[in-house]
């Protein structure tokens, strides 16, 4: 059991001493997850808003597909993206395999359904009186839509938090697309997988704690943003 307690001590040492290997993994994780979250919010918020706000034929079917994709396994996304960007794949010429942008593309596909589904839910759950209220205040169609998005901002923020949590914590995509290359594409999660494989539990626990700490800091910042908004 000593290795668990040892893990906490090691975590502190790694962080305080500024261990370059640990910090490399931390920064890679941040870079990859930030890229994927920006891309997925950029695409997911407009799509999710449209899905929740407007009525059109096939809306329910699309919603069912998006909800199904919430359960998308990371290895399936990894496999799919790998097949596309491998040297002999259709997008092989882009040279994305074993690169940070490559991981970000796959993670975007992974978390996009979360952003779409949660944004759509937030927008469609707006109070029924909302639309009438802004119409009686003279808002036109565009203004009403913009106000609707702003009114559901807490739900959209929650979508972002959930998506970021999934991106930062997943290992399948990072491992398959990134290849766990030291100093290059090694993220915290792939490093933990490696350390566990090597039997270095203390190191693994230390990295796990770093990951949780990171998630806590990010959520704390969002919490403050929420209170201000």
């Amino acid at each position: 059991m000593d290795y668990i307690a040892e893990g906490f001590v090691t975590a502190l040492k790694l962080l305080l001493r500024g261990d370059p290997e640990t910090y490399s993994a931390v920064f890679t994780t941040l870079r990859v997850s930030s890229l994927s979250i920006i891309a997925s919010l950029g695409m997911g918020i407009p799509l999710g808003f449209s899905l929740g706000y407007y009525s059109f034929p096939g809306k329910r079917q699309i919603r069912a597909v998006v909800d199904t994709l919430l359960a998308l396994p990371t290895v399936v996304v990894g496999l799919f993206v790998y097949a596309l960007i491998t040297r002999r794949g259709p997008l092989g010429s882009l040279g994305l395999l074993f690169t940070i942008p490559g991981i970000a593309v796959a993670q975007t596909i992974l978390v996009l359904p979360i952003v779409i589904a949660l944004t759509a839910t937030a927008v469609s759950h707006l109070d029924v009186r909302f639309k009438r209220t802004v119409l009686t205040l003279g808002a036109g169609r565009r203004r009403t839509a913009i106000t609707a998005l702003y009114e559901s901002r807490y739900g959209v923020l929650a979508a972002g938090v959930a998506a970021y949590g999934r991106a930062i914590g997943e290992v399948g995509v990072s491992m398959m697309i990134g290849g766990n290359i030291k100093w290059h594409t090694r993220t915290i999660t792939t490093a933990i997988a490696l350390e566990t494989g090597k039997g270095q539990f203390a190191m693994g626990i230390a990295l796990g704690l770093v990951l949780l700490l990171l998630a806590f800091v990010i959520n704390w910042v969002l919490q403050i943003m929420r209170r201000r908004a």
Partner: peptide, 28 residues
């Protein structure tokens, strides 16, 4: 519809400050 305004039976306030709620119609 900008010349006409209605107070609903159960009024709804936008999720923002009192000031922004009241100023909304003018901003529109």
């Amino acid at each position: 519809s900008k010349a006409v305004t209605m107070l609903l039976q159960e009024p709804y306030l936008l999720k923002r400050s009192v000031f922004e709620n009241i100023a909304y119609g003018l901003r529109v």
